[in-house]
């Protein structure tokens, strides 16, 4: 019986410590040191929240850069991947279909090597990034849809180069570009 009481008391003690005080303490520190990040890296335009810098958005119109395929169509509730195995014929069909679509949509040569992240769905379904290569392949299509002059088009290409994030600390992770940030900058090009 004594063991039961000790067990309940110690459980109660650690519930308060690690279940209440610890998360509250971290929330306090987080809100003081990194308030924007702790609250979801929300980006606003004209004082209206337009998304999170970390959460990708469905983007499939001609005037914006497209984001990766997503198994949940960028609906974060809940996040998810396709979970297709490599031997799943549905995956093979989807990849072929996306390849054709990407080439047709961007009016590319049929031999163009398309960066693989544009053919395969991400793990979270919310991947905010694509590779710079995938962005460059979309420039002509966007310039055309927006009736850009050559100068504006060059500005857009410069924009891609500026927003490209290299590996963190020179060695970690992959080269990438944030689609939402890129599209917001795209809207600024006059």
């Amino acid at each position: 019986m004594k063991t039961f009481f000790i067990s309940i008391k110690i459980f109660l003690f650690f519930t308060i410590l690690t279940g209440i005080l610890y998360p509250l303490f971290i929330t306090g520190i987080a809100q003081i040191l990194f308030p924007a990040k702790a609250n979801g890296s929300i980006i606003s335009r004209n004082n209206k929240a337009i998304g999170s810098a970390l959460i990708g958005q469905q983007s499939d119109t001609a005037i914006y850069f497209s984001s990766r395929p997503s198994a949940v169509s960028y609906n974060p509730l809940p996040s998810g991947g396709s979970n297709f195995g490599l031997s799943n014929s549905k995956l093979k069909d989807l990849v072929n279909q996306r390849k054709k679509q990407f080439i047709a949509f961007n009016r590319l040569d049929s031999f163009t090597v398309i960066p693989s992240e544009m053919l395969f769905a991400s793990a979270s379904g919310l991947d905010p990034h694509i590779s710079p290569d995938a962005a460059f392949l979309q420039v002509n299509r966007i310039a055309k849809a927006r009736h850009f002059t050559d100068i504006q088009k060059r500005k857009l290409e410069q924009c891609i180069r500026d927003l490209t994030e290299g590996p963190q600390f020179l060695c970690l992770g992959e080269e990438r570009i944030n689609v939402l940030l890129l599209n917001l900058n795209l809207d600024q090009i006059k």
Partner: peptide
């Protein structure tokens, strides 16, 4: 093959 993988990783 990037199926089920994130660009940043």
């Amino acid at each position: 093959r990037m199926e089920g993988k994130e660009t940043r990783f």
